[in-house]
Structure formats: C-alpha cells, structure tokens
C-alpha cells in the first residue's frame, strides 16, 4: 500500500451520475486491474473504496457512480482538487498465462463492476465482454471496450452459457457475483464490494468465508477464485 496526494485532472461523464475520473500522481503501487484505491473525501471519516479502472505512468482512473452523499460530492469536485488516496490495495485479477491474448476469456462487468474489466480488456485484446445492468436503460461504458465483442444485457445469466469461454473475470455486487459463481461452468475469478473500514487488513471490517477459512476482502481479496468462495450465507 502507498499513500499520496493526487490531482483530479479530468471528470468524463459516461452517463448522468457516473463518470470516469482521472487522478494524476504516483502510479507505482498499481500492479493489476482488480486492485482498489481508497479516496479520502473532505468531511468524511472513512475513505471510499473504488476499483482501479486503468493506469499509466502519470496516474490512474476510476469509474465513480453517485451512490450516496460521498460519491455525489466526489463527482462534483472541480478539476485541480487534491485528494489523499491509498493505492495498491488488495489483489488484482490473475487470469492463467495460457489465455494468451484472451480469446477464451470472458470479462463480466455488472454495473460499475465494468471498471476493472476495461483495464483487463486493454491487456487481453481478444477477450469477449459481457456488461450487465439492472435495466438496459442503465447501460454505460461500452466505449471503454472498443475493438472487443461486447454483449450488453439486463439478463446476466443466459449469456454466460451462450458465449463460449474457458475462463472468466467478473466484478459487481455480491449478489450478482454469487449468481455468476453458481451458474458459470468455467473457472474464473470474482471481485465484489463490501463495506470496509481500513481497507488494508487491520480491522476485520469485511470478511468472507472461503475454503481456506476467513478471508479479508480488502487484503486476501477483493478478487477471489470462484472455487474458493463459500456462498452459504
């Protein structure tokens, strides 16, 4: 984990209430899509966790949806605002090397869970993409997957069967990820959000049962192997 100040450089609306934010600053802690950052917001005690969408030498991007007061205020901040950010948190997606350019890889993003899929898509030019939304009119972000075969749907489950793939990477709400884990026959990796305290492993704020015992979503996760998660609760 690293900590630093980042400059909000760009707010690119993807649809009303959802933007791609670019933050400029040290990007040395980023290793893989699926890792997350915690952004401190003025006036709030807890930082807000967001998946990293992508990064380069000059900074990184996140996709933020106005879900409550903190995210609403974040989206309204003017460019140039300095934000304190914890970076390089959690473990990212690690599809097996045998996937090559990704022709057998399916990237599944549910809602803002599409954010780390955009970073993965750049690394796997042949990967197929499934973007699921509660309703089709909620859809956004297709432009982040230019050059890929993209399926946009409000029915998450049927495309899992219809699109051939050997491995998947999925990110979204816990309930959507549970459905993916239980329906997709391929192996895969899954990331989801839970409410967090510290985000770096010290408070046991968000733990998940796995076959290896209890795992902290912020530290052992947020990306888990499909096979290691236990969904009984």
């Amino acid at each position: 984990m690293n900590r630093g100040f980042y400059t909000l450089a760009e707010n690119l609306p993807l649809k009303p209430g959802i933007s791609l934010l670019r933050l400029e600053g040290d990007s040395s802690a980023f290793q893989r899509p699926g890792q997350f950052v915690q952004i401190e917001l003025p006036g709030y005690f807890l930082k807000r966790p967001f998946s990293v969408c992508d990064w380069d030498e000059g900074g990184f991007s996140v996709i933020v949806e106005a879900a409550g007061s903190g995210t609403r205020e974040l989206l309204a901040l003017p460019s140039g605002t300095a934000l304190l950010v914890h970076t390089g948190l959690g473990n990212g997606f690690t599809p097996p090397d045998s996937l090559g350019l990704g022709e057998d890889l399916l990237l599944i993003g549910v809602g803002t869970g599409l954010s780390p899929m955009a970073g993965l898509a750049r690394r796997y030019p042949e990967a197929k993409v499934l973007l699921a939304f509660r309703r089709l009119e909620d859809a956004f972000g297709q432009e982040l997957f230019a050059g890929h075969e993209v399926c946009v749907t409000e029915d998450l489950l049927s495309p899992l069967v219809a699109i051939p793939h050997r491995f998947f990477c999925a990110c979204g709400s816990e309930s959507a990820m549970r459905a993916v884990a239980l329906h997709d026959r391929a192996g895969g990796q899954i990331a989801f959000d839970v409410r967090m305290g510290c985000g770096f492993g010290a408070c046991m704020g968000g733990s998940k049962k796995t076959v290896h015992g209890y795992a902290r979503v912020c530290r052992e996760g947020p990306v888990f192997e499909k096979e290691e998660l236990l969904w009984e609760d």
Binding site: F45, V194, R195, M196, G197, C203, G205, G206, D233
Partner: peptide, 30 residues
C-alpha cells in the same frame, strides 16, 4: 485483536458504518 477461547467468524456483513467524525463497527470479535 480481542481473543476468545474458540475461533470466531464474527458478525454478518455489513459490519462497518460511518458517522460524523467517526465510525460504527460490529465486527463481533473475529
């Protein structure tokens, strides 16, 4: 961290909430 005789998973999620100038936790001694 608070230690008990037997292992404990703690409470169901969510276990964390925010408050003005603070936070709530209900970790439940994991």
């Amino acid at each position: 961290k608070g230690t008990t005789l037997h292992p404990r998973y703690g409470n169901a999620l969510p276990r964390i909430a925010e408050a003005p100038s603070g936070m709530l936790n209900a970790v439940g001694l994991q």
